[in-house]
Computed example of a mutant assay.
Amino acid sequence: MGGEEKAKLLGVWSSPYSRRVELALKLKGVPFEYVEEDLSQKSALLLKCNPVHKKIPVLLHNGKSIVESLVILEYIDETWKGHSLLPQDPYERANARFWAKFIDDKLMPSVWKTFLSKEKERDKNKEEAYELLRTLESELKDKKYFGGDDIGYLDVVANVVAFWIQRVQSVVAIDLLNQVCFPILCKWIERLYHEIPVIKECLPPKDKHLVYIKARYEAATAANGNL
């Protein structure tokens, strides 16, 4: 399956959502062309392929465009053979989809809200983010990966938790994810980094990324007024 046309990924180097698609493609061994988008001057191709949201990532394959990172991950898993991302069992598949939505719709918005909090709101927001991280950690429990013995769909989705939180918190000086509070999650992060070599290929260059995060954070705090 997969057809003969090479896949093309429209993304942004700093986006965890296009990076997760890149990771899925590489785990499956899918050859693809990467196209860096400038979201301040969106290309005609991006606007044509995602006219509804006008956002990245977009996967182009066999003349068709697939949008939204979670949808793209499932498309990749169903289209190309190789390393299976989603579980075969219907219940386990549904469970993985549930936790993926939890990460994108509840956990990460709470984390970003905490990082951008004004000082008087920070403790309350931080506790809410802690509680959601505890909830995610309880799903991992004593498993090697969220996908079981091998990296899977939810591990790919949770890559945003594994690396972006740690990088952002180092810039904003708000400690959320650490070994003391979340030993299971931190062990999982360490395992990902050391046991899945392709992970490193799908992370933004650290120094460049930290400069980018700092600039974005300063712009956001200026827009929000004094934090």
Rank of each mutant, 00 (worst) to 15 (best):
N178Q: 01
V172F: 02
I174N: 00
K28W: 10
I196G: 09
C202N: 06
A215R: 05
L9I: 13
E119G: 06
F163K: 01
A24N: 05
N178C: 09
L116F: 13
S110G: 03
E195W: 09
I213L: 11
L9P: 12
L107E: 02
H83Y: 04
N62H: 05
L73D: 06
T79D: 07
L116M: 09
K126R: 10
E33D: 15
W188F: 08
L45S: 10
S65T: 10
D149L: 13
Q166T: 15
V111G: 01
S43W: 08
Y217E: 03
L46C: 11
L10R: 08
I199N: 02
D207G: 10
L140I: 09
P204V: 10
A219K: 14
L154G: 11
S117F: 01
V157S: 03
L10Q: 07
K124I: 07
H194F: 13
G147W: 07
L60H: 08
D105E: 15
F146V: 02
H53M: 01
I151E: 03
V52G: 05
I76S: 09
A173Q: 13
R167M: 06
K124Q: 05
K206E: 14
L210M: 07
N95M: 09
Q88I: 05
K28T: 13
D77F: 14
L140Q: 09
V198N: 06
L210V: 13
Y212S: 11
W99F: 10
S43D: 03
L27C: 09
R216E: 15
K26Y: 11
E218Q: 14
L60A: 04
E74K: 15
L60W: 04
L176E: 05
C49A: 12
W188R: 10
C181R: 14
I66A: 07
A158D: 08
C202S: 12
S15M: 13
E119Y: 08
K64F: 13
S170H: 00
E74D: 07
V58P: 10
K141N: 13
L132S: 00
E139T: 12
Q166S: 07
Q41I: 10
I56P: 04
I184C: 05
I76K: 05
E128A: 06
Y75W: 01
E195Q: 14
G152H: 09
I72M: 07
R191D: 00
S138R: 06
I189D: 00
K8D: 01
K6A: 07
W99L: 00
I103A: 07
Y193M: 12
W164Y: 14
L210R: 01
R216M: 02
V156M: 09
E139A: 04
L86C: 03
L154F: 03
E137F: 06
V180D: 15
L86H: 14
V211N: 06
E68T: 08
V171W: 03
K200V: 06
I103L: 06
V198R: 05
A44H: 11
